[in-house]
Design a protein around this nucleic acid. Structure first.
Lengths: 236, 236, 236, 236
DNA sequence: CATGAATGAGAGTTCATTCAT
DNA sequence: TATGAATGAACTCTCATTCAT
């Protein structure tokens, strides 16, 4: 017993910790935070009730660990999913695909995580998680603007709201309807993005006139923005 | 006793009922459904604990009343806000403005309402509320398609997801950042909608020239709007 | 309204009082004392909740009225049932018949009434009710002894315990078995009484020897009693 | 920790369980089932309120345990009390003595147990308890009939009603009067039984002499008993 | 480290009783 | 006298957390 290397002990601890988190996530999702009972979590993790408290000081701490876990998975997954896609819209497509799939797969955890009470309880960490996650989108988008694949005047935050908000709503709609994700929602989002932020919007399909049109539109948009900014208001 | 009009009795009941709902909403929002204590609700409503139960049989019933109240306000408000706007984009603008304002004003109630546990507990009524509410958007959108103000091939549900999802996300973003709603998010959503669903999107069917014409007209319209708004509304 | 004679008003009051007692009895029997709700009693009596309290100050008072009612019915019924039966055993038969029938008909009320907690709460009135009721038996029995129809040495209280106790147990047995009272139990009790207390006990069947035996037994019994009384103690 | 025998754990649990039942019995008896408060039971058992629920899932379960306990004591006690009494009347005397003593000792539990609401709630188990208990009487009685010590035509159930019913009534009478059990009631019951079911009742089958002999013997026994009691016990 | 029995504060709900009308 | 809305004390049961073993 004493000659087992130190790593094993640490590994055992991490294994247990993970088992507890997994059990807790399942129970929280099934019954909600308040409805979840520590006894059931312990039972599902295969340990005694008191033992949970050796790993997590309180129920809230356990919840926080789950939230951290979720955001980490999300962010790492998004990075991995978008890696290698050089084209901006391809990258956005991959991100949208990943985001929607993840949302639908773990919408219960999303609900748990978004719970306002939790956010209120720890607003700074909530913002930090979100910030880190949406950075994936932001980078792709900004790179697109730099490469002139996206409209130069497009505001990142506005696009981001449409992107994540639209996909989240789609996920909710699909789940409520009991339908499975078949790519339509993602394709639609991309179409919207190409239309709204694309620079050489669908040029092959519309010919030169469309290109001309695009440039005119961009000019108009710029006019609008100037008008808006003229009344000051610090843009985001 | 005899000279008090008959309405008084009923009014008193409704007043009380309303007071309880208001108190309950505040407490639920503050502590969450499970964290809310009936004793505090009663205290805030200025009545005895047992009296609450004369108006609402259980805590859940009270919650349901709040949810119903919220959706009713939302739907009626949306109808009222969009009434009189003949132009599709104007109507959508008004709806977006109302939706975002309402969401930000009562985002805590939104969170309460969206809580998955409640939705799971009564999925049919949840769907019904939502259906009734989004019908406001659907009607405007379909009318726009009929009038050829919107692209004929645009799918309502896809547009709806982007619309409501994007605005909801904007609301969340603004709230998390502690900012106030200043019209930018709404304007941005409209811009996206014009780009994605404006009738200039179907050039193949009408010929490039017609498409160009349409989009130019739209651009002019937008300019005009911008000019009008510059006078009395602080755009972002 | 004012010219209605005073009797009517008193009658109305008594009618109501009776209606309340009847309703209360039904509810008490159905749900037990603690399980009974004043609101249901009022509803069944066709009056408002508060009105009950104009007739009975508390729930306990209402219960007491039911108990008093029950014992009065019981005692009056027993008097009526035994009236006119000159022969001792005939009178006892009639009393047994009445007692068993009444017990089975209203065993639920009996249970309610016998409840030790109630008895403890008001022991003196309980004893008084019982005393008044069993007096019916006692009179018949004593008269039988006086007339030498019953053994001269028979103790009233012992006979009384066997009589009422046996019949009550029979009632319980029959009710538990879901059977109806068919006279067997009463006939059996009478047979026991004739055997135990009859003077010319079944002489036809045993002949003279038995008669001799009976006299011997009676002598022994008398001896016993004398011995007992010798140590003073007021016999019952 | 290691030198404490394995039994200790189990014993501790049983001890606690017993302590809870004892405390609960006392409180139930004192205040009635509905009037009893779990808090008081816990306090009297010397444990925390929540701990009671580790041993008994609900208040009703606790009550059921008390009832089961009572019937078990009653049945085992009756078996033990009658064991070794070969003569039928001796056995019945021992049973009567035990029954009356037990009833008077624990009449409050009897009331609790007999409560109609409880019986109604679980009629089958109630009947089973009773059946098992009265089997003690039935066996003695049937054996007596087989041995021709009792009249061949005597019906067991009728005798049983008189036996248990009469004794129960005696117990009630004594308790209401605040008197103690001194053997008189039991002796009286036995006299009734001898008269009603003694073999002298079937002279045709055994001949008058045998019956006469038996009864004389019984009379002598009674004399002996009386003489014994005259020395140290105040008869009623 | 691990256990799980014990704790006890607290919650939702009921209902006998009151009292303004 | 009649009403019934309002009251609020009290009850059973739960469960996060602790701690002796």
């Amino acid at each position: 017993m004493s000659d087992i290397p130190a790593m094993t002990r640490r590994q055992r601890v991490e294994e247990r910790e993970h088992a507890i988190i997994a059990a807790a996530r399942a129970v929280f999702v099934e019954h909600g935070y308040d409805g979840a009972r520590m006894a059931e979590i312990a039972r599902r993790a295969g340990i005694a009730e008191g033992t949970v408290y050796l790993y997590f000081k309180t129920k809230v701490d356990l919840m926080k660990a789950i939230v951290a876990d979720f955001w980490r998975d999300l962010t790492l997954g998004a990075r991995k999913a978008t890696r290698g896609h050089d084209d901006t819209f391809e990258a956005l497509h991959a991100l949208a695909e990943f985001h929607l799939t993840m949302l639908m797969d773990r919408f219960d955890v999303v609900e748990l995580t978004q719970n306002l009470r939790m956010v209120k309880a720890d607003p700074s960490s909530s913002r930090q998680y979100l910030k880190t996650y949406v950075a994936v989108f932001d980078e792709i988008f900004r790179r697109g603007v730099d490469r002139t694949e996206l409209a130069a005047d497009a505001s990142v935050w506005a696009a981001r709201d449409v992107f994540y908000g639209g996909l989240e709503y789609s996920a909710r709609t699909l789940l409520v309807r009991g339908e499975r994700h078949d790519g339509t929602a993602v394709n639609n989002m991309l179409r919207v993005f190409r239309a709204a932020y694309g620079r050489g919007k669908v040029p092959r399909e519309e010919g030169a006139a469309a290109g001309l049109l695009g440039r005119l539109e961009a000019a108009v948009e710029r006019l609008e923005q100037q008008a808006a900014k003229a009344e000051d208001q610090p843009s985001r």
